[in-house]
Design a protein around this nucleic acid. Sequence first.
DNA 1: AATATTTTTTAGATTAACCTAAATTACCTA
DNA 2: TAGGTAATTTAGGTTAATCTAAAAAATATT
Lengths: 223, 223
Amino acid sequence: MFPISKTEENYLKAIFKLYEETATLVSTNAIAKEMNTKAASVTDMIQRLSSDEKKLIHYKKRKGVKLTEAGNKIATSLIRRHRLWETFLVEKLNFSWDEVHEIAEELEHIKAEKLIDRLDEFLGRPKFDPHGDPIPDAAGNFTFRKQILLTELQENQEGVVVGVLDDSPSFLQYLDKLRMVLGTKVKVLERIAYDGSNRILIDNQYEQILTNKVCQNLYVKVT
Amino acid sequence: MFPISKTEENYLKAIFKLYEETATLVSTNAIAKEMNTKAASVTDMIQRLSSDEKKLIHYKKRKGVKLTEAGNKIATSLIRRHRLWETFLVEKLNFSWDEVHEIAEELEHIKAEKLIDRLDEFLGRPKFDPHGDPIPDAAGNFTFRKQILLTELQENQEGVVVGVLDDSPSFLQYLDKLRMVLGTKVKVLERIAYDGSNRILIDNQYEQILTNKVCQNLYVKVT
DNA sequence: AATATTTTTTAGATTAACCTAAATTACCTA
DNA sequence: TAGGTAATTTAGGTTAATCTAAAAAATATT
């Protein structure tokens, strides 16, 4: 295989991300913004990545781009490396999850297969990184994070409201009063053993006690 | 501080190494050989590293180069990172000591101070890497590996002859016959409890039984 | 539809890191 | 010391990755 530069890898990662977010062909400008560079530079790189020798992206002039199978494989591998290193930094080196991104951004470009596999093993082949994002396995398969009930969230874990089990008007009205909508951030501050009630931080702003019953009817996704 | 590229770092490391080995000004050709590049490229880089903005090496045209204080600091930091990562790979990821070099060669260029400090801590602030080479501390100080007597080397440990205790001609002549000189590699294959004699592998080539008396008069450095 | 605006591409330059070939300097030995 | 060889530097060129400015195409607006 031809060698892929760090820069090329970063472009592939950006295209992967943008395509995932929008599910449409990715525009030159969108890539330029994502990569903090100029549209002209993006066009250059697009031409190289879509060249006959590389074929890492599909490109129709003035239409936009998306990854080919080969490009997708590389991007997935990068995400795997990134998230494994983030997990390492948080779990083994005691970084907090908000300070690991830039360092992982560097580490992810080291390609040695054996290194990644040993790291994966050392970490216990984790399926999710410290932000709750899935870590693709060596074959590139993601485990989708199932949504869980708020009662299943551990103390100090954070999540985002993604749905309800009980969709009765009274429940929804109650949620409304609590200012909890889809996308609201929640954090379990404390779970009171006595009655299963929960001290919840809503939107990083205010605390609220929620009963076990309420929490059993709220779906969240770990973040 | 101005940014230092990976390539510049590698040149500094090479100059450090060559200067340490020869203790004389390092020649353009020596660097070219060490870095697998051409003399002309080396001259280019020498000019950049010795420029008024950088001042990482002392350079007298056609005389050779050596590191400045600033250059030395960078090289030492690189060695620190390299050896810490090697230690990590061997001790935590179960690599064998002969397969870690190239991977560490990549990892060493990641500069985040905090990463290196946390890694150091995670490894228990080791003073030597898996090859027995000293790991400089955060301030750049090396712990010198004390020389020990060959009798103090463990079974299966390897060392390099660095001196003698007894410097009588008869002893030196005997060593000469054994083809043991300064720098000769030795490995303790077996220590015979009965009489304290030692089965030694010399220069990775031939075995020899050495008496306890001989081994008590030979200084080695663990490798 | 005609024009204006935005997006994308092209053209042409720049910088770091390399290269080869040629010129210069240092050194070694007869 | 003269000449020859080896080491070093200079000159000039290449490639990847960037940039700005301008041209071209697509999209929006009147």
